[in-house]
Amino acid sequence: MKKQALLVLALSAAGVATAQETVKIGHVASMTGPVAHFGKDSENGVRMAIDALNARGATIGGKKVKWVLVPEDDAGDPKAATTAAQKLADAKVNAVIGHETSGTTIPAAKIYNDAGIPQISPSATNPKYTQLGYNTAFRVVANDIQLGRALGRYAVTTMGAKRIAVIDDRTAYGQGLVTEFTNSLRQQGVKPVAREFTNDKATDFAAILTRIRAGNPDLVFFGGMNAVAGPMLRQMKQLGINAKMMGGDGICSDAMQPLSGNTMTDGQVVCAEAGGVEEKGKAGMDKFRADYKKRFGIDVQIIAPYSYDAVLAIAAAMDKAGSSAPARYLPELAKVRYPGVTGTIAFDAHGDIRDGVLTLYTFKGGHRTPIGVTK
C-alpha cells in the first residue's frame, strides 16, 4: 500500500509538472462565414509560430515548455465572439491572439481583461479597441487614426493635392477615417473645399457630387467601403469630375473596377491598408511567405505574419518575466521590443503598435498595385 501511495503521489506530481510546462495560446477569428479565408490565414500564422517555438525548444525562464494552440471560431459575429472569449477564459489560456475584426475584437476585450488574459489583435484597426483602457489589449497593426493621418500627408506632400473634397458614409469607420484625414490636412494648412456625407447603402450621389464639382477638386477622399465608392466613381465621371479618389482599406480591393462600371482609370484611385514591411524587412517577409506556402500549400492572405509575430512577442515577454502566468509577464509584454517579420513589435501606452506602417496602393489594369510603405 505504501508503494502504491508513493506511486500515486509521483503520478500526481508528474501531472502538475506537465500542466506547468504547457503554455496555451488561444486564437479566435472567423473560421466560418464570408471572411473565413482571413480567419484561417490568421490561425495559420499562429500555428507556424507555435511550431517554431516547439521546434527550437523555446524556454521560459530557462525551463523547457510545450506550446499548444487552443482555437475558437467567432464567425465574424460579436455575440459569438464573446462566447468564444469566455471559453478561452474558462480554459485558462495564457494568451489570446485575436479577434480578426474590430466588431468582434472590441466586445471580447472586456472578457479577457476581466480574466487578466493578454490579448493581441493581429488585424483590428478601430481606435476604440485600445481606447477602452484595458491594460490587456494590444494590436500589431496601425489603427485608423494612423492610417488617416498618413493618407493626409501623402495626399498633400506626394500627390500634390491642393483642392480636396471629403465624403464619409456616416459609419463609425468612415467618419473616423475622414476625421483623422482632415486633421492631417489642417496640420498642413490645407482646408477641404467641400465636406459631404452619404450612407453605406446609398447608390445615388448626384446631389453631393454636384456640390463638390463647384469646388473644382483635384482629389476626393471617401471614408467608406467599395460598394459605395465604386458607383460614386462612376457618377463622378458622368458629371465630369476628373479628380482622383483616395480612401482606406474599405476601397482597397480589385472589386473597385467592376463596381465602378469599369470606369476607373489607371492610377486614379489611391488607397491604403494597415501593415506592410519596409525595404529592410522584405527578405524576411519573402522567406515567411515561402515557408507559409510550403507548410499550407497556399499563399499568405494578409494577417498571418502579424499573428505569427504576436505569438513570438508574447513568448519573448514570458521568457523575460520567467513565467507564462499572465499577471507575471503582462508588464514585460507592455514594454517588449521584439524584432518580428513585420518589423519591431513594441507598444505605446495604449497598446497600439509603435511606428505602425501601412501600405499604399493604386490600381493598374483594374488590379491593386502597391505604391510603397509609409508611416
Score class of each variant (00 low, 15 high):
K3T: 12
L11C: 14
T18C: 12
T22R: 06
I25C: 05
A36D: 12
G39Q: 04
S42T: 06
G45C: 11
V46T: 06
M48K: 02
A58M: 09
I60H: 02
G61W: 08
G62P: 13
K63E: 14
K64A: 15
W67H: 13
D74W: 01
Q86W: 00
D90Q: 14
V93H: 05
G103L: 01
K110G: 02
Y112V: 04
N113D: 15
I117N: 00
Q119Y: 02
P122E: 03
D144L: 12
G148M: 06
G148L: 08
L151I: 12
G160D: 08
K162D: 07
K162W: 07
V166L: 09
L177R: 06
T179N: 15
K191R: 14
R195Y: 08
R195S: 15
E196L: 09
A202N: 14
T210V: 08
T210R: 09
R211F: 10
G215V: 05
P217Q: 05
P217E: 05
P217R: 02
V220W: 03
F222E: 00
G224Y: 00
R234W: 08
I241S: 05
N242I: 04
M245N: 01
P258S: 11
T263L: 10
M264Y: 04
A274W: 02
F288W: 05
R289E: 12
G297Y: 07
I302Y: 14
A304T: 08
Y308K: 05
D309S: 04
A310T: 09
A316L: 02
A316Y: 05
D319C: 09
A325D: 15
L333D: 00
G340L: 08
A346H: 13
D355A: 13
G366P: 00
H367W: 09
G372W: 14
